[in-house]
Every structure is written in C-alpha cells, then in structure tokens.
C-alpha cells in the first residue's frame, strides 16, 4: 500500500511549526501505524534528514505514551484503541493521512508530534492517591467490596493517561481524565475516606493548569482509547459539589 502523509513538523517548543508532506510506499496491510512511521523515519535518516519525533513505548495500547491526532481523530479513526494498535489495513491504499500533535494549551508541543503532558502528572499529584503508608495496612480481605463496585472502579482505572480526552475536547477540558481517577477511588472504601478532599484538590489543580470547562459534548468518551464513560464525569461532579456544600 502507498500513502501520502501530511505531518506537523516543529523544531522545538519555541519555533513555529508547519505541515510537511511525505510519501511512503510498499507498506504491508499488516503493518501497524507506528511501524509505518518507523519505516518513514528510517527512510528520512537514510536521506540525512531528521526523523519525525513522536511518543510511543509499549506498543500494546497500555502505557499511554503514544498520541497523534490522525485525520481529525485522537488515536486515529478506529474506536477504543490507541495509535499503536491501528493497522494500515484500516486505511485506503493511496490515502492522504494528516498527522498532528495533541493540540491543547496545557499540552505544549516539545518537538514535531511530541507534547508535554506533565500537567496530568501534576493533577494526580494534587490528590490522585490514597494516603496510606507502606506496611501500615489491614489484610486485603478485611473489607469486602461488592463486585459491582470493584468492576466499576476498574472501568475508570483503565485510563492510560494518554491525553486524548483533553486533546479531543473542543474546550480543552481534562474532565474525563480527572473523573476517571476520582471515580475509580470513590467506588472503593479505601478511596472513599479522602474522597471529598481529593475531588476538590484535583479539580482546583485542573483549573489552575489552564484546562477548559466541560460542556458535556461527550467527544472525550468517543475518542478515549479505553472507552471510559462520561458517567465518571457525573460522579466527579457529584463528588465535587457534595464536597463543596459540606464546606
């Protein structure tokens, strides 16, 4: 298969970027999207040009490192997968593919398609944990947890922190990410203890870091590679408001 790639190139955070057009040919349909990028990069190196910088690591859809806005979709046109899990058989032979970095004020571009998602770490540092010390904990079975709650917690905990939600949201809102963590811990008795504090602290940090406001479009859940539901946003709203009304 052959493809025309329009890729955003940007030297560093301060430089202006622009699209460059590249062609790749003889790509097997079984090649993954990122392997196709590897092939392009190897070609560029042989031409003495700098390869396209993009984030990736596990290539199994779990580390959350890969990003890329492909033909208008975060993680490409497939549903419920990360960029590293897309295969070229899902594209048309000869198709033009436009590849852009995440675009959000809170995710500045570092180089080409690589952005800084440190803001997500900062939000979690504000409260995305249970304050227990190593070794001062009860037996794992001391508190039974209804299977339904554990499952729901796991649904939210599947978030890989890739940034697709904020990158997709027309408002640049990180609500789905924040909600996933708050909701996951809120569904467990262990996390319940400091639930109110967590919701307030994480929302305040999210606002401080310049993420936008959620307007319930649901675009985040449509593009989330882990299909995390906006029901978790509802739970975050509930957690936050009830915490505030208790103040």
């Amino acid at each position: 298969m052959n493809f025309t790639l329009k890729i955003w190139r940007q030297k560093d955070a301060k430089s202006h970027g622009a699209f460059e057009t590249y062609k790749v040919s003889d790509i097997s349909p079984d090649t993954s999207f990122l392997e196709m990028m590897d092939i392009l990069n190897n070609n560029l190196i042989h031409e003495g040009k700098e390869p396209v910088a993009f984030d990736h690591d596990c290539r199994e859809g779990i580390c959350g490192m890969c990003s890329l806005h492909i033909n208008g979709h975060a993680h490409g046109p497939e549903q419920a997968v990360t960029t590293c899990q897309i295969y070229m058989r899902k594209f048309r032979d000869g198709q033009t593919i436009v590849i852009e970095p995440w675009r959000s004020a809170a995710f500045p571009v570092i180089k080409d398609l690589v952005v800084d998602r440190g803001a997500y770490d900062k939000i979690l540092q504000a409260g995305g944990f249970v304050s227990v010390r190593t070794n001062s904990v009860p037996d794992g079975n001391a508190i039974p947890i209804p299977k339904k709650d554990a499952d729901e917690s796991m649904d939210a905990a599947a978030c890989v922190g890739c940034g697709a939600c904020a990158a997709t949201c027309k408002n640049g809102s990180a609500m789905l990410f924040v909600a996933a963590r708050v909701s996951s811990l809120a569904k467990l008795p262990q996390g319940r203890v400091e639930g109110a504090r967590r919701a307030k602290a994480m929302v305040a940090k999210m606002d401080e870091l310049g993420f936008g406001n959620c307007t319930n479009t649901g675009a985040c859940q449509a593009e989330c590679p882990k299909s995390i539901s906006i029901a978790h946003i509802a739970r975050l709203n509930r957690e936050f408001l009830s915490a505030k009304f208790e103040d």
Partner: peptide, 22 residues
Amino acid sequence: NLIIDQCVAQGVPFAREYGGLL
C-alpha cells in the same frame, strides 16, 4: 502477602468475587 494488602489499601481494583472478597 504484604504486597496484596498494600495494593488493596492503595485502591488497586483487584478482581473480586460476588461475596466481595479477592
């Protein structure tokens, strides 16, 4: 065994049975 206890306390959503146990 301590690891399991520690992780449960941190809010790791391990799979559970209908009785609520791990």
